[in-house]
Design a protein around this nucleic acid. Structure first.
Lengths: 194, 194
DNA sequence: AAAACTTGATAACATATGTTATCGTTAGAG
DNA sequence: CTCTAACGATAACATATGTTATCAAGTTTT
C-alpha cells in the first residue's frame, strides 16, 4: 500500500535494509487481527507470506475494502499518519508470516529519505499511485455493473478470487453473497470451458 | 484537491503568495473545458469564483467523479505528476474565474517547500487526506444505498445539490437521472417541510 | 468420529434500479 | 421575442439485486 517502494524506487532498498533489524517477525494463524477498528495504527505491516484484508463493521456484517498479499505492505493510513482511531480492521485471511515496523522507525526513515535528491517527485508519485488506486475503485462503481466489476477482478487480479473466501469478495464488490453466486453461475454458463 | 494547503498549513501562505504573480487569471463561461481527456495536465487550477467538475466519457455519456468550488484547487493528479494522458476532463459548470499555475512553478514551489522542517509530515498528511477522500467515496458505495448516498450528500455538502445540475449528480451517485428523481420524490413525500 | 462452524449454491419472493418515452418548464441563442 | 436546447418529473415496463430460507460439502474443534 504505502511504502511499497522496492520495485518502483530501487534506490530505497538501502534505506529499507537498514531498518530490517527493527522489524518484528510474526507467524500468525488465519483470522488474526493485526489492527482493530477504533485503535490507533502504531506500525507498518509487511506481508512475507499469506494474505490480509482491510475491512470495517457495518451493523454487524463486515465490508471488505482491500486485500493484500505477499510482498505488499499496508497500514490504516489515515490512522497511522494523523494518530486518529482507525476506521478499519486489518486481519489475516490465511496463516501468514508478517513483519511489523513501529511507526517511530517509519517516520525516521522518511525523514532520512527526505534528503535524497528526488524525494519530492517520489512522494508525489507514490501519493498519485495510491490516490489512483482508490479513485479507480470509485470510478468502477459509477461506471460498471457488479458483473463487470467481477469480470475486471477476474481479469486483473485473479489471485484474489482464487485465494479469498467468496463472501469477502462479495462485500468488496458491493453485492450480496447470493448475487455474487448468481454472477458466477451466469458467467460459467455463458463461457463453458471444455 | 491537491495543494489546497492554505487553511491547513498557514506556514505555506508565504510560499503561495510568492507564486501568485505567475498565475494566469481567466474569466470563462460555463461548460468551458480546462483540461481535456487524453491530454497531459500542464497546470494547477485554482477556483476563485464558480465551480467545475471532473468527469470521464463512458460510451457517450459523462460520468462525473468530483465537484470543485470557490477556494479549491484541482488538477488531474495522476496526469500532472506522471506526465501521462488524463483519464478525466475538467470543465466549468458555472461561469467562473480561475487561476492557472504552470506545472513548472508548482514543482519548483514543492522543491522549495521540501526544505521546511515538517515537510515530510505535511506531505503525508495531505496524501492521507486525499486518499481518505476517495476511500470514503468507495466505502460509501459498498456500504450505502443510492438513497443513503444522496442523503449523505444533502447533509454533508448541500451546496453541491444546490448548484449542480441534477444529471451530473446522478452520475456521481452512480444512478440514472430517473432514479435520482425518484429518490428526491420519495424523500420529499416522507419529510414534508411546511 | 461426532458436532459445530465455514463456505458456497440455489429457489422464491420482494424491492430497487435501469430504459425508454412523454411532458412541462426554464434558460440561452439568434 | 421566438425558437431551441437543457433540465427535470413521471409513467410503464424490464431487469438487477436483496432477503430469507434451505441444502450440501468441506473444515475445524472437541
Amino acid at each position: 500500500m504505502i511504502f511499497h517502494f522496492r520495485e518502483k524506487f530501487p534506490l530505497l532498498n538501502t534505506y529499507w535494509d537498514r531498518y530490517l533489524p527493527f522489524q518484528q517477525r510474526m507467524e500468525v494463524p488465519a483470522k488474526t487481527v493485526l489492527l482493530e477498528e477504533g485503535k490507533i495504527s502504531q506500525q507498518y505491516i509487511f506481508i512475507e507470506k499469506g494474505c490480509t484484508r482491510l475491512f470495517f463493521n457495518n451493523n454487524g456484517d463486515d465490508k471488505t475494502v482491500q486485500f493484500f498479499f505477499e510482498k505488499e505492505g499496508l497500514t490504516s493510513f489515515d490512522s497511522f499518519v494523523n494518530n486518529i482511531p482507525s476506521l478499519f480492521t486489518i486481519e489475516t485471511i490465511e496463516p501468514s508470516v508478517i513483519y511489523l515496523l513501529p511507526k517511530h522507525y517509519v517516520l525516521q526513515l522518511m525523514d532520512e529519505l527526505s534528503h535524497e535528491p528526488n524525494f519530492v517527485q517520489m512522494m508525489m508519485q507514490l501519493s498519485a499511485q495510491r490516490q489512483t488506486h482508490y479513485m479507480n475503485e470509485f470510478v468502477s462503481f459509477i461506471r460498471d455493473t457488479p458483473e463487470q466489476r467481477y469480470q475486471n477482478l477476474l481479469a486483473d487480479r485473479p489471485h484474489i478470487i482464487q485465494r479469498v473466501p467468496q463472501h469477502y469478495i462479495a462485500s468488496y464488490l458491493g453485492v450480496s453473497t447470493v448475487h455474487l453466486s448468481r454472477i458466477k453461475n451466469k458467467l460459467a454458463k455463458g463461457k463453458p470451458h471444455f
